Simulated scan of single mutants.
Amino acid sequence: MGERKITLFKGGLMSNRAPVAIVTGASRGAGRGIAIALGMHGCIVYVTGRSEKTGDHALPGTIYETAEAVAVAGGTGIAVRVDHSDDEQVKALIDQVLNEQGRIDILVNNAAAVYDELTDPGNFWEKPLKLVDMIHVGLHSGYVATYYAAPAMVKQKSGLVIFTSASGAVHYVYGPAYGAHKAGMDKFAADMAVDFKDANVAVLSIWMGALLTDRLKMVIASDPEKYGSLESMTESPEFSGHVIWALFNDAQLMEMSGQTVIGAEMAVKYGIKDEGGRQPLSYRDTHQVEPRIQYPNIIR
């Protein structure tokens, strides 16, 4: 399995009752933003990913930098190197969190294998086969993390599992691997909620908007004419984290369990605005799409 490196960063004053969160794939992008936002709300945040030093990835960002940012924001950041393609490393992560904290309150399944070639022109067979890794480090790894966290959440009779998704679940975006990943995340939330229902554990999938991350900035710069309009429609990476925190504290959370929600709409519900006081638009307005509703039939 290889050596797993662990680094702890402490920020503001923490109580023994501080919520414990795991954010996978948090070296950069959405995961980093969500982790920092949860840190702002005083959480103990386990930050996972593979990037430990500059150069480990073409884009900037490491698990240690994110954990430090969580601490600066007022939480406690714990960096754990995890290769989410390795099920044993994922299990070891969950075991570590339970050994150190005794519980898991929030699990954010965000890790995914995203390659630059995803946005290249062409049909799926004209792009590298490695793009299908989104199914393994994405769907597969999110299932495994939830599988190992589930018994503890069921025992404690509380918890929130989040799958990060987007509107590509219901329309063509970048090809079938991307779409299958997003649709699968939504389906995981719907079906896992059925099994979790009696345990008071909520599961939701969140459609995040286009995030103004380093990756998206590179995409926009690669073809300003094609992608330039995206910048005015973006959300900050932290925005979804604040929405997740509001969901976690909603007394009616279990009534929403199993749903795919649009982050921008949840923000309006909870009175959350993005940086600069912006109110991001819903996919219903920008793309004229909405999440699919699962039928209530249950066959066991």
Rank of each mutant, 00 (worst) to 15 (best):
R4W: 07
I6Q: 08
G12W: 06
R17C: 05
G25H: 03
G31E: 00
I34Q: 01
A37L: 07
G39V: 02
Y46N: 02
T48C: 10
L59S: 03
P60Q: 08
G61F: 02
Y64S: 05
E68V: 07
A71C: 06
V72L: 12
G74F: 09
V80I: 14
D83C: 10
H84W: 09
D87K: 11
E88A: 14
L93M: 11
V97I: 10
L98F: 12
N99C: 09
G102Y: 11
A113W: 02
A113V: 07
T119Q: 12
G122P: 09
G122L: 08
F124H: 13
K127R: 15
P128T: 07
D133C: 07
G138H: 01
Y143G: 05
A150H: 01
I162N: 02
F163T: 04
H171I: 08
V173I: 15
P176W: 09
G179E: 13
G179L: 06
D186I: 00
K187I: 08
A189L: 10
D191L: 15
V194M: 12
V201I: 07
V203E: 02
D214K: 09
R215P: 01
G228Q: 11
S232G: 06
S232I: 09
V243R: 01
V243K: 00
A251W: 03
A251S: 15
E255Q: 15
T260E: 00
V268T: 11
V268Q: 14
K269D: 10
Y270E: 01
Y283Q: 03
T286L: 13
E290G: 09
I293M: 12
P296L: 04
I299E: 13
R300P: 08
